[in-house]
Simulated assay, not measured.
Amino acid sequence: MAAIRNAGAQLTPAAKRSHGLAPSLWIYDEFAQAPNSDLLNNLRTAMGKRRESLGVIISTQAANDQHPLSQMIDDAMLGVETNAQAGAS
């Protein structure tokens, strides 16, 4: 049986540190607390480096209706295709 290597990393909201990643799986916890979508955009871009990579956002609702998370939820409820969905095909 092959050994499983733990290659996990914890990122801070500083988007600069997320450049150059190639994750198979990323989980963005509490996106509503992020000041912008820079880190999310970098993670989405990094998904193109691996076949069948997966990204998951788990969060409480953002307090501001203009926050990127609130806009993503509104778009999903309207059935609008987002950039993340378009890139996942």
Rank of each mutant, 00 (worst) to 15 (best):
53 S>L: 02
62 A>I: 00
66 Q>K: 03
6 N>M: 01
79 G>T: 01
3 A>K: 12
88 A>R: 14
10 Q>Y: 10
28 Y>K: 02
71 Q>A: 03
87 G>P: 08
85 Q>I: 11
79 G>N: 01
84 A>R: 13
62 A>W: 01
46 A>V: 11
87 G>H: 11
22 A>H: 10
23 P>S: 06
37 S>G: 09
64 N>Q: 09
72 M>N: 01
74 D>M: 00
15 A>G: 15
9 A>D: 01
79 G>S: 02
75 D>C: 08
57 I>F: 03
80 V>E: 03
49 K>A: 10
19 H>P: 06
71 Q>M: 02
46 A>C: 13
71 Q>K: 04
55 G>Q: 09
10 Q>F: 14
29 D>M: 06
72 M>R: 02
39 L>T: 13
11 L>H: 09
37 S>Y: 00
89 S>I: 07
51 R>T: 10
60 T>Y: 06
58 I>C: 14
5 R>Y: 07
54 L>K: 15
13 P>N: 15
4 I>V: 14
11 L>I: 09
47 M>T: 07
71 Q>R: 04
41 N>G: 15
12 T>L: 14
27 I>C: 05
13 P>S: 15
36 N>G: 06
28 Y>L: 15
59 S>C: 12
13 P>H: 14
43 L>K: 15
70 S>M: 00
41 N>H: 13
6 N>V: 04
59 S>R: 04
13 P>M: 12
38 D>I: 03
3 A>N: 07
19 H>N: 13
42 N>Y: 12
65 D>S: 09
37 S>W: 00
51 R>A: 12
82 T>D: 12
51 R>H: 05
31 F>G: 14
82 T>I: 09
50 R>M: 11
65 D>E: 06
16 K>C: 02
47 M>L: 14
2 A>I: 11
76 A>L: 07
19 H>K: 15
42 N>M: 13
30 E>H: 08
17 R>K: 09
31 F>Q: 08
47 M>V: 00
5 R>F: 06
4 I>N: 05
83 N>T: 12
21 L>P: 14
25 L>Q: 05
48 G>E: 15
53 S>F: 03
44 R>M: 05
68 P>L: 00
64 N>K: 06
57 I>T: 05
38 D>K: 07
7 A>C: 08
71 Q>Y: 01
9 A>N: 01
19 H>E: 12
26 W>V: 12
86 A>Q: 11
24 S>A: 11
5 R>C: 04
82 T>Y: 06
54 L>G: 02
88 A>F: 11
34 A>F: 13
78 L>I: 06
89 S>F: 03
62 A>T: 05
14 A>S: 11
21 L>Y: 08
41 N>S: 13
3 A>H: 06
75 D>T: 08
78 L>S: 09
61 Q>F: 00
21 L>I: 14
35 P>F: 04
40 L>Y: 12
49 K>M: 10
68 P>D: 06
43 L>Y: 11
29 D>F: 05
34 A>M: 09
9 A>K: 08
44 R>P: 01
58 I>V: 09
67 H>F: 01
56 V>S: 13
78 L>Y: 08
1 M>I: 13
50 R>P: 08
3 A>C: 08
46 A>I: 12
77 M>W: 02
7 A>G: 11
61 Q>C: 01
66 Q>P: 00
40 L>Q: 10
77 M>Q: 05
29 D>R: 08
86 A>R: 13
34 A>Q: 08
79 G>C: 02
42 N>K: 15
73 I>V: 15
5 R>G: 02
14 A>H: 10
